[in-house]
C-alpha cells in the first residue's frame, strides 16, 4: 500500500474528527478573540459588537508601552541567560553515556513539566527569610541576619531562567546530538583545547540553531505569567499578567483581547523569523 491521494470522501474519514475539533475549539475561539478586540466595552463588564479601534488606541499609552518594553527586555534577558547556560551543558550532555543521558533527560522533563505555580512557590521558599538561602549565608558568616530575597527583579529573572532552562536544553538537544562528532575530534587532533574547540568550531557550526533557540526561548518566556506575580512587584508584571488581569479582574474583555492579538502578532513575527533562519540554515 503506497501513499496515495484520497480517492473518495470516505478516504477523508480519519480527518473529520481532528479537523472539526481543531476548527471549532481553536480557530473559532481565536477568531472570537480577534472579533472581541474590536468590540465596544460597556460599563459593568459587558461588551457589545462594534468595530472600534479604541482598545488598540488605549494600548498605545505610556503605561502599556512601559509594560510591553519590560516584557520584551525580560524575555530577551531570560533567553540569553538560558542559551548561555544551556549550550555548554547540552554539549557536555551529548558526550555522556546513553544511560546517564536518559537520567538527565528524565530530570529535565520533570522540571519542565512543573507548574509555574509550583516553581514560583519553590523559589519563594528558597528565597524566603525563614527557610531560604540567606540562612545559609548567615551560617557561613556573609550576612548578619537572614533576609528575604524576593520580591525583586532578580527573583523573577531567576525563576524564569529556572523554568526555561530545561526547555532550552531540550530544544538544543536534537541539533547537538546530530552534529557530526568528527568536527570536534578534528579540532582536538589539530591541537586546540576543548574550550577553544567549543567556541571556534561548535558555536559557529550551530549559529543558526542558536538563533532559532534564542527566539523560541524568548517566546516561551513571553508566556510566563505567574512567576512575575509571585516573585516580583507590580512593576515587574508582564503583558501576560496584564491580559489576565484585564480579562478576569477588570472585566475588560475587549481590551484584554486587543493586547492578546498584539502578543500574537509579535509572536508570529518571531516564529516566521525562526523559520526563515531555519531555511537559510538548510541551504548553507
Amino acid at each position: 500500500m503506497k501513499r496515495e491521494p484520497p480517492q473518495s470522501i470516505a478516504d477523508y474519514g480519519p480527518l473529520f474528527f481532528p479537523a472539526g475539533m481543531l476548527l471549532i475549539f481553536f480557530v473559532v475561539p481565536f477568531g472570537t478573540m480577534i472579533a472581541v478586540s474590536f468590540f465596544q466595552r460597556q460599563e459593568g463588564g459587558f461588551y457589545t459588537p462594534a468595530f472600534v479601534f479604541t482598545n488598540y488606541e488605549r494600548f498605545l499609552s505610556a503605561f502599556f508601552g512601559g509594560v510591553l518594553g519590560f516584557s520584551l527586555i525580560l524575555a530577551v534577558t531570560v533567553a540569553i541567560c538560558c542559551v548561555v547556560l544551556a549550550l555548554p551543558f547540552t554539549y557536555l550532555l551529548s558526550t555522556l553515556s546513553r544511560r546517564l543521558q536518559v537520567i538527565w533527560l528524565v530530570g529535565l522533563l520533570s522540571v519542565l513539566s512543573l507548574s509555574e505555580v509550583i516553581i514560583g512557590f519553590a523559589w519563594s521558599t528558597l528565597l524566603s527569610r525563614t527557610a531560604g538561602l540567606s540562612n545559609l549565608l548567615v551560617k557561613v558568616g556573609l550576612l548578619d541576619q537572614p533576609v528575604a530575597l524576593f520580591p525583586s527583579f532578580g527573583a523573577v529573572l531567576t525563576g524564569m531562567v529556572y523554568q526555561a532552562l530545561p526547555y532550552t536544553v531540550l530544544v538544543l538537544y536534537p541539533a547537538i546530538v546530530r552534529l557530526d562528532p568528527t568536527l570536534m575530534e578534528a579540532a582536538r587532533t589539530l591541537g586546540s583545547s576543548p574550550i577553544r574547540a567549543f567556541f571556534n568550531v561548535l558555536v559557529p557550526a550551530l549559529r543558526n540553531t542558536i538563533m532559532a533557540t534564542l527566539i523560541m526561548v524568548f517566546i516561551f518566556a513571553l508566556g510566563s505569567y505567574l512567576l512575575p506575580q509571585i516573585l516580583g512587584r507590580p512593576q515587574h508584571w508582564t503583558l501576560s499578567v496584564l491580559i489576565t488581569d484585564q480579562a478576569i479582574y477588570q472585566s475588560n474583555m475587549p481590551f484584554a483581547a486587543a493586547m492578546a492579538v498584539f502578543l500574537v502578532l509579535v509572536t508570529l513575527g518571531l516564529v516566521a523569523l525562526t523559520l526563515l533562519i531555519g531555511r537559510k540554515g538548510e541551504k548553507a
Partner: peptide, 20 residues
Amino acid sequence: LGIAPFTLPPVITALGLLTF
C-alpha cells in the same frame, strides 16, 4: 493548527477559549 496552541504564549489560547 495542532502545534500552534502550544507554540503561542498560553495566555492567548486561554483568552481565546474564555471569549469562546
